[in-house]
């Protein structure tokens, strides 16, 4: 494992920890899209089914278990926590996730490495992850809420994507025969969407700053 891959995994992990700590500390999930969080849970569950079939390393297993449990933990807070669930922007978070899930299912059935249950589900998870941030992006555009979704969360997610691209480049040049077109193309799309997300974040941050300036 190279340094880019490890740093990418760590920033991904930190982004989730930051979000959880924020929800726990402020007892608020305003500005956080439950739909995006649920899509991430679907992504992790469908991708990490191989926990039962293959063993890669202790690191790999621990990280997979962490991603699955932490995503369900966030969902639990937003749905069932007595105080946090009341701060959820239910009326604003209305993105139709079927528009993302259904095309991803079809694409995974058509374009995959091997037509088997586990492999198609893995491919589906790769496609779905690349667009799972969209409900969050729409919610941010609607509410211009930047207080709760901290700069740290957005920054860490963006850094995770950028580091994974560096990891692929590194592996491509150091590992003979290393090539994975599905992951590369989806990952590039995902990074592009995050750039968009980051753009809106900066715009709303500047807008808020202007509004809060003393006149």
């Amino acid at each position: 494992m190279n340094i880019f891959r490890f740093a990418g995994d760590m920033t991904h992990l930190c982004s989730i920890v930051v979000l959880l700590l924020k929800i726990e500390a402020t007892k608020s999930c305003a500005g956080v899209s439950l739909r995006t969080q649920e899509l991430y849970a679907v992504v992790f569950v469908s991708r990490y089914l191989d926990l039962f079939f293959t063993f890669i390393s202790v690191y790999n297993t621990v990280m997979k278990v962490f991603f699955i449990t932490s995503s369900f933990c966030i969902i639990w807070y937003m749905r069932h926590h007595r105080i946090v669930s009341q701060t959820y922007d239910r009326e604003q978070d209305t993105f139709r996730v079927a528009f993302l899930v259904v095309p991803c299912i079809f694409l995974a059935l058509l374009v995959n490495h091997e037509f088997s249950m586990v492999e198609v589900l893995w491919t589906f998870s790769i496609y779905l992850e690349s667009v799972a941030i969209l409900p969050q992006l729409i919610l941010l555009q609607r509410t211009f809420n930047v207080d709760t979704l901290t700069s740290n969360y957005v920054f860490l997610l963006g850094a995770y994507r950028a580091l994974y691209i560096l990891n692929w480049l590194y592996r491509y040049f150091t590992e003979p025969g290393y090539s994975q077109w599905i992951v590369w193309s989806s990952g590039t799309l995902q990074t592009a969407i995050y750039c968009d997300f980051f753009y809106y974040y900066v715009v709303s941050w500047r807008k808020n700053e202007r509004l809060s300036l003393p006149s």
Partner: peptide, 10 residues
């Protein structure tokens, strides 16, 4: 046939 890829990334 090509051996099943081991998906070692997260």
């Amino acid at each position: 046939a090509e051996p099943l890829k081991q998906h070692d990334e997260l």
